[in-house]
Simulated assay, not measured.
Amino acid sequence: MSELFYNAAPNATRAAPPIPKQRQYPTHKPQHVYLFGTCVVDLFYPQAGMDSIRLLEREGITVHFPQGQSCCGQPAYTSGYTNEAREVARVQLALFRQNWPLVVASGSCAGMIRHHYHELFKDEPVTLRLVDTLAERTYELAEFLLNVCKVNLQDQGAPLKVALHTSCSARREMNTHLHGRALLAQLKGVQRVEHDHESECCGFGGTFSVRMPDISGAMVADKIRALQESGAAQLVTADCGCLMNINGALEKQKAVLRGQHLASFIWQRTGGTQ
C-alpha cells in the first residue's frame, strides 16, 4: 500500500526511497519459507494468499504462516507516525525468527520490510541486527518464484491479453515490474499488452486515498482509462491494495475489465484448481 504523497505528522522526516541493488540469490531452493500475507490479503483477498501458498508448495517447499502477523507498518510509517509504525513492525519481527526466507505477497510490503525497517530501528543496535538479517532474506513472491525457485511455468489456459499493473513503490524498490513480466512471458498463451500510466500510482496509496479522495479518484480514473484502452481482457497485479482500488473503480463504472492477483492468475493458468 504505497504512499505517493506524504501527508506526514509534524516533524516527520523520510529518507529517499532506495534504488534496488543487484542481489545474490540462493543457488538452491530452501526447504522452508515464511509467508507474509499482508493485512489486505488477509482481510480482502485471502484467495491470493492461499494461491501463493499453493505455488510455493508445488515447488516442494514447506510454507509457514505465523498466525500473529498483521500489517507491516507501512501506512503508519508513510503517514509520518514513526513510533506507531515501529511498534507494529516490532510485533512482526518476533514472528520470523528462523533463518528461512520471508516471501511477501505484495511488492510494496516487501519493500517496507527490506528497505525501510532499517530506518525504523536505526537507534536500536540489537534490534537492527535482526532487522537487517530479515531484510536480506525478504523476497516479493514473483521475485522468489523467478529467481530462487526458478520456476518453469507450463501454461494450460486459452489465449488471453493481459495488462500488468505494478504499484509505484514496489516497482521502484523491488523491481516487481521486471519479475512480473518475466513470469507472464513464460505463459505461452498470454500476451502482455503495454498501457499508458503503467509506472504511475493508481491513487490508492494506503491512507492517501482516504486523506485525498478527489486526487486519488482522478488518478485511478486515468489508470483505468489507460487499461481499458490497452485492449487487455484482464488486469494482473501483485499488490492487493492497488487491486482493490482499481477493481473498485472499474466496478463503479460497470466495466467488463477486472483485475486478479498474480498468484491466483498463475495458479489457474498452470492447472491449479481451487
Rank of each mutant, 00 (worst) to 15 (best):
N7T: 12
A9D: 06
A12S: 10
R14P: 00
I19W: 05
Q24Y: 14
K29C: 03
V33E: 01
V33Q: 02
V33H: 07
F36Y: 15
V40F: 06
V41G: 01
D42R: 06
F44T: 09
Y45H: 15
Q47A: 15
S52E: 09
L56V: 10
R58M: 00
G60L: 07
T62A: 15
H64K: 14
F65Y: 10
F65G: 00
F65R: 06
S70N: 12
C71L: 08
G73P: 01
Y81R: 00
T82L: 07
N83R: 15
V91M: 04
A94I: 03
A94E: 12
L95P: 06
F96V: 04
F96N: 06
R97T: 05
N99L: 06
W100K: 01
P101H: 04
S106E: 14
G107H: 12
S108P: 03
G111M: 06
R114Y: 07
E119R: 08
E119Q: 05
E119W: 08
P125L: 03
L128T: 09
V131G: 05
D132I: 10
R137Y: 01
Y139W: 09
L141Y: 10
F144K: 10
F144S: 05
N147W: 01
V148H: 07
N152W: 01
Q156P: 03
G157D: 08
A158V: 08
A158L: 04
V162D: 03
V162Q: 06
S167Y: 01
A170Q: 12
R171D: 12
L183W: 00
L184C: 08
G189Q: 09
Q191N: 10
V193D: 11
E194K: 15
E194Q: 15
H197T: 05
C202H: 11
G203D: 04
G205E: 08
T207C: 09
S209I: 04
R211S: 13
D214N: 13
A221I: 07
D222P: 02
A233C: 03
A233G: 15
T237H: 08
G241W: 08
N245Q: 14
G248A: 10
G248I: 04
E251H: 13
L257N: 12
R258T: 07
R258C: 03
G259W: 09
Q260I: 00
A263F: 09
I266L: 07
G271R: 00
